[in-house]
Amino acid sequence: MVKIENIHDIDKLKSIFEAIKKEIAKNIIGQEEVINHIIVAILCDSNALLESYPGLGKTSMIRTIASILDLKFSRIQSTPDLIPSDITGTYVIQEDRGKKTFKFEQGPIFANIVLADEINRATPKTQSALLEAMQEKQVTVGNTTYPLETPFFVLATQNPIDQEGTYPLPEAQVDRFLLKILITYPDSKDELEIVNRYAMREKKQDLSVLLNKTSLKNLQILTRELPIAEDLKLKVVDLVGKTRTTKELIEYGASPRASIGLILAAKAHALINGRKFVSEKDITAMAYPVLRHRIILNFKAEREGKTPDDVIDALLKKV
C-alpha cells in the first residue's frame, strides 16, 4: 500500500496513479477516459454525473475503484417509489431488556463512495435528500444532523434512453455535479476482451488496496495546492464567460461554479499525469465534462444538430 505523507512522495504521484489504473484494468477493460474522470472527481472532493446506456459496467467500475482505494461502497437503485429515508436512514424501534428505544439506522448514503443508479427515476423529494448529502456532506433526520464520513463521493447515473416516467434533474441541481461523464460503447477489440474475460470465467480478479483514506485526503489537499498560472486562470474565466455571451448558440451559460470546477478539475488532471503545474492541455481536456451539463443550447443549435460538446469545441477555439 502506498502512503502520501510528505513532499518527497510527490515525485511518486505519476507512478501511483499508473498503478491504480493498472489495477482497475484487471476488472474493467477500456474506458480509460471515464476512469480518469472519476478519479478527477474523487480528487476534487466532488461528485460526478454519469450518463450511460445500460450494461456498460458502471457498477463494476465504481466498485473496483472503491476496493482499490479502500473506501466503503454502497449502491442505491433509484425507483419512483424510493423515499428519502431509504437513502438517509431512519429510526427504528429497538427493544433492550424490555425497554424500547429509537435507534438510528444508517442508510446507504453512509458510505465513502455511493452509486446512485438512475437518479432521474427517483422523485424530486428523494433527489433533494441525496443532493443535500452531496453538498453538505451531512444528512438531517428529524432534528438530528448526522455528518457523513470523508472522503465522500457520489456517482449518480442517468440513462439517456427510457426517459418516460422519469424526473429529470433540474439545472440548478445538475450544476452541483462537478463533471458529467459520458460512457460510450466499447470498440470491438475491447468487447472481445470483455467476452473472453467474463463469458469464459466467472470469478473476478482479486484487487490490491493501493491507497488508504489518509493518503487520499492528502492527495485531495495536494490537488487544491497545485499551482496554476495567472493567464490560464484568465483563460478559464474567459471561456466560461463566453458561454454566457455566445447567444447565437447558447440559451443559458455556465455560472462561476463552472470556473471553480474547471480549475479544480484541471489541477486534478495535472496531478494524475504526474505534473506539478496546470497545463493548457488540462484545461482543454476537462472543459468538456465540466461544461457540457451547465450550458443549455438554444433552439437554433439544437435544430442544427449541435451537441454541447460541439459548442464547447467552438468556444475553445475562440479563446
Binding site: I7, L222, E225, L226
Partner: peptide, 17 residues
Amino acid sequence: RTAKDHQNSKSVMVQAL
C-alpha cells in the same frame, strides 16, 4: 510561467515545482 506567478508561495506543490 507557473513558477513566476507563484514565486513567493510556500506551498508543498509549488516547492516541488
